[in-house]
Design a protein around this nucleic acid. Structure first.
Lengths: 153, 153
DNA sequence: GATTTTTGTTTGCACATACAAATATCGGTT
DNA sequence: AACCGATATTTGTATGTGCAAACAAAAATC
């Protein structure tokens, strides 16, 4: 009966694996995404849609591959997101050679400011919970880590 | 032509929104999950399967709700994961009243050590990339943030 | 100028995840 | 004993995401 075998059965069982970054990163992502879903849900969007729409409004004619880079999402995922947004009449596609140019519709352009405000609200909400200073530090660390992981490991 | 309109077209276009924790948390999660998928993929598992299997081996007879708590996943997701693992003959379910008890099969028990080793490898890989000290700090911060966000915001 | 290779985008398919509703069981109340 | 609210689990359905393959167009090679 050593200390190691003291497994708290039931409530608050803390697993050894939960200390892993793989687990906690995903848990954090889900927790914050929940906030985003709540804010962007009013427009029938998820956070990636919201982000994508803002990018398209800021850079009309942007291509899927550029968006893929900016949003850190696979090209196929971008295609799917654009499809959805096109279906909601917020963006339109234009073929130019092998490229595809994505433009906002009038409707999309009109909606963007509200969506941008929602981004701010999301930021305010988790800042209030986590603490402004911690958010900055955490975000910077996360971005750095992501970047390092991205460039071959 | 003020500095603000200096938008770098194409490569390394840094969006204002990418500074958002919502975005970067998801990006990090995807990046690390990619490592996990690579390691656990050898067993035909994803990281949640791997985590779940280890928990079941360590606590035979654990219930879905306990797993839901430990893995921070919804009960329905747990059901689906268990289904998959059951299909792969790694765990089995036993009904006891309104509860469901989950046990590892012999096969599952036999596989667990290899899976646990894969967890270690995942940890080593991102530690090497990010730096051991930074990983510890980052993980702690992330866990704290997640916890705070979890308890009502 | 024709063929090969590379690049950009889109599909087919699969999967993890969650919400809402359905189902089943337990613990009380009357 | 019969009902009722609470709890545990499972299904129906939908969504974001990615891999591998298909496709299209451009660029490079011969």
């Amino acid at each position: 009966m050593n200390a190691e075998s003291e497994v708290v059965q039931g409530e608050k069982a803390e697993s050894r694996y939960s200390a892993c970054l793989l687990f906690s990163a995903n848990a954090l992502a889900r927790a914050i995404t929940a906030i985003g879903d709540e804010e962007f849900g009013r427009f029938g969007l998820c956070y990636s849609h919201a982000y994508l729409l803002c990018e398209v409004v800021e850079q009309p004619g942007i291509t899927p591959s550029q968006l893929s880079e900016t949003l850190s999402l696979s090209p196929s995922t971008i295609t799917r997101l654009v499809e959805k947004l096109e279906q909601k009449q917020l963006v339109r596609r234009e073929s130019e050679g092998k490229k595809t140019l994505i433009y906002p519709t009038n409707e999309g352009e009109a909606l963007q400011p509200a969506v941008a405000k929602a981004w701010d609200r999301v930021g305010e909400r988790y800042s209030k919970a986590i603490g402004e200073a911690d958010v900055c530090q955490l975000t910077q660390q996360i971005k750095k880590a992501t970047q390092v992981l991205g460039e071959g490991f």
